[in-house]
Design a binder for these strands. Structure first.
Lengths: 137, 137
DNA sequence: CGGAATCCGCCCCGATACTG
DNA sequence: CAGTATCGGGGCGGATTCCG
């Protein structure tokens, strides 16, 4: 950022529709992906299915399964099955996932720091919008 | 990350359903938000509506409008109208938006660096999935 | 140029039920 | 415990049309 080179030539890399990095960005542009990878990054250890479920308030079991599968597919999360009874399945971050987790934790931290400012801006915007659709004749 | 404190007490901050930071995270968990803020961050200057439209390959005018409004509402983007004919409207990042732009550019960079690894992992996963639904008896 | 408005299909996601 | 399967509504987002 801040370097002017992007205005010149090579910025197209990240913005063309067929750019591979778009695929990756669109993986991360998903709230449950952010929450799951974020949680695994925070706790910094493998976690079991229902443990994650309890931690991630509001996630349904379907969404958790789906999100974990997608992350496993993309090589960010590893799934380990211990064939005990009852079965024990642990989900952990891969090297790649740990890397992504750092970025995501940075986002989570930033969100926490600036949440109030943003929510205030939002309610003020909404107030201005409802207050004068037109300047009262 | 890596500090153990999150396993103890205060990790709930970011994961409870009613946590304010969740709202912010869910603003960022949107591909068009990432692309728009990313582009404004890369170019590091205010941009006009149709300029952004041309840069962000594939975005519709509706989505661009909608995304810019949402970002303005949350105080990440400022909208400036120059009442010329034809009208000239510029969108720029606020201080808050610049800050977010740094995070987002980091994500974009990371995505570009690791795109091939991830896409390879993905196709291998898909191959394994289709190859042996069951070990061929 | 910079939008607003409308129509509408698709798929995301939640709820629910069942399984090994 | 750790899932799979199915149904169904809602909303996201694309395409199109029109406007100052």
């Amino acid at each position: 950022m801040g370097t002017y080179s992007y205005a010149e030539a090579d910025w197209t890399l990240a913005y063309r529709r067929d750019c591979p990095s778009r695929t990756v960005i669109e993986v991360l542009a998903n709230k449950w992906v952010l929450y799951v990878v974020g949680a695994l990054g925070r706790f910094d250890r493998p976690m079991r299915f229902n443990e994650l479920r309890r931690v991630l308030d509001g996630i349904t079991q379907k969404m958790l399964t789906q999100t974990l599968r997608a992350l496993e597919r993309d090589g960010l999360v590893s799934r380990t099955v211990y064939p005990t009874t009852p079965p024990r399945v642990e989900y952990g971050l891969t090297t790649l996932g740990i890397d992504a987790g750092r970025l995501i934790c940075a986002i989570a931290d930033w969100s926490e720091e600036h949440a109030q400012v943003i929510l205030t801006a939002r309610s003020e915007f909404d107030y201005r919008a409802t207050a004068q659709p037109t300047p009262a004749r």
